[in-house]
């Protein structure tokens, strides 16, 4: 009983037969093999499954895959060119914006949506912008530092280091 889903994932146009009840997060992880998008809470609260849908941060556990028909999706794997790191990824690394790392892809995708709209967010704006994401390890201080550092790097147009 599959229906056809046509969607662009990280720049690649795809067409897959999917069941209506398939959630976007399971499509990304199981059909596309993009396991960087995590399932955290399964109750649409934690934000670990955040991806960009036509540029807006959304929780991919809270959408049917078929609802993404015709859309462009960016996951953590597609944020930077192959082998490189996005300034947010570099900044989370350098500022130790993670401990266990499970929530990190979601934080980075939510932060990417925030920085696309606001190039120089205040601490409070970062807090508001990331209120849909939970981290149970870091206490958020280093996450905020990382987002500020990434914003600065992006404003200065620093190129992402390739190859690490």
């Amino acid at each position: 009983m599959g229906q056809t889903l046509r969607v662009t994932v990280n720049g690649e146009a795809r067409s897959d037969e999917v069941e209506p009840r398939l959630l976007l997060v399971h499509y990304l992880r199981e059909t596309c093999g993009l396991t960087g998008t995590h399932v955290g809470c399964d109750t649409s609260q934690c934000g670990a499954c955040t991806v960009l849908l036509d540029g807006a941060a959304v929780k991919s556990c809270n959408m049917l895959a078929l609802q993404a028909d015709g859309a462009e999706i960016t996951t953590i794997e597609g944020l930077a060119p192959e082998g490189g790191l996005h300034p947010l990824q570099t900044a989370f690394w350098e500022n130790h914006g993670l401990q266990c790392g499970y929530c990190t892809p979601g934080f980075i995708m939510a932060a990417a949506a925030l920085l696309a709209e606001n190039h120089d967010p205040s601490d409070e704006e970062i807090g508001r912008g990331l209120e849909g994401n939970l981290c149970r390890c870091t206490g958020y201080v280093n996450i905020r530092k990382a987002v500020k550092a990434a914003a600065q790097a992006m404003r200065e147009g620093a190129a992402a280091p390739i190859g690490g």
């Binding site: 209506p20 649409s44 959408m63 609802q67």
Partner: peptide, 26 residues
């Protein structure tokens, strides 16, 4: 009907709601 789905999809996942058919109005 499914609109944004931000309340409905959690209910579907918990199987508190089991509609036979969803009409997507997005």
């Amino acid at each position: 009907v499914i609109a944004g789905g931000q309340s409905l999809i959690p209910l579907l996942r918990l199987r508190l709601s089991q509609p036979s058919h969803l009409v997507d109005v997005n």
